[in-house]
Amino acid sequence: MHHELNVVWFVLLGILFAGYAILDGFDFGVGMLYLLVKDDAERRLLLNSIGPVWDGNEVWLVTGGGGMFAAFPNVYASLFSGFYPVFMLLLLALIFRGVSIEFRSKEPMHWWRNLWDTNFFIGSILAALLLGAFAGNLAYGVALNSHGTYIGGFWALLNPYALLVGITTVALFMMHGSIYLVMKTEGNLHDRLRGWVNNSIIFFIICYATTTMATLLYDRHLTSEIRNHPVFFVVAILNMLAIANIPREIFHKRYFRAFLSSCFSIVALLSLLAIGLFPNIVYARNNPANSLTIYNASSSPLTLKIMFIIALIGMPIVLAYTTYVYWLFRGKVRMDGHSY
């Protein structure tokens, strides 16, 4: 009877990480396309398109981490200690990316700006790749002992499937970010970026198709849930429709709708992962009995209840002022004396 809360927290964490992927996803995408723009004034426009929102977007990851600690402490402990080197690299990428945005426009020298611009670019790609590889390892399954501790070693984390999901994530965020930029810019820059939307959609579709094939071939535990409940095919189909809708909306210059389609696609992809994993969070490929599930890895019913109340009080307020901030900085990027 208490088990509903375990499911609720699985969904809530899914929402937090989906929120993170949607929001920081376009930040990463902007970083990936950033070096393709050569002019300093245009680079500043790109940077300032995410200027007021990027660190709020990163809070979704931090809160997701805190939520996972509170709701599923065994997953938090196993994943982060097990994926140690990958995670340290992710932290490195995120820190350098953040301070690059902060520092690059503070000095006028060319070498200074190029240095931070390059850091911003590398940090964005590396962070997306590692987050993707992280999701890829979850999808593929890892080696856990009977205490739920990761025993696979470092190199197992860099398996081809995880790397493929990592590259797909890079492509996804590049597409997502390019649509965001098209929405936020005008004139010549806007026209050039429109071309990049098309390129990145093609890149993403190739990656997505490859990942889907690899998943069907190698991740039988992930696809069995969908085989058993064919109704979930709807998610996959809706995902395809959303992706197909993006070029159409771009063609009709309805950029916000294109952006929503891209957001939907991110949610659908994460939903497919969540459906495939449920009720596992970390699937033990060596011995499925060792898997960390939403039941054996969770906090006590009382803690789940307390955290649920906290989320019910806190998250509507967060959504309200986050919406307000996005609304305040809506429309095309405008530069002023306070910009980065």
């Binding site: 990163e58 809070v59 805190g66 938090y76 955290m307 986050t322 307000y324 901030v325």
Partner: peptide, 25 residues
């Protein structure tokens, strides 16, 4: 985790979002 995670998650929900959201303004 059952005890310690709750204040950490609360910090995210009640503090970090508030700070970074209004920092933009």
């Amino acid at each position: 985790g059952d005890v310690f995670g709750a204040p950490l998650a609360s910090e995210g929900i009640f503090a970090f979002f508030l700070e970074s959201g209004f920092l933009a303004v």
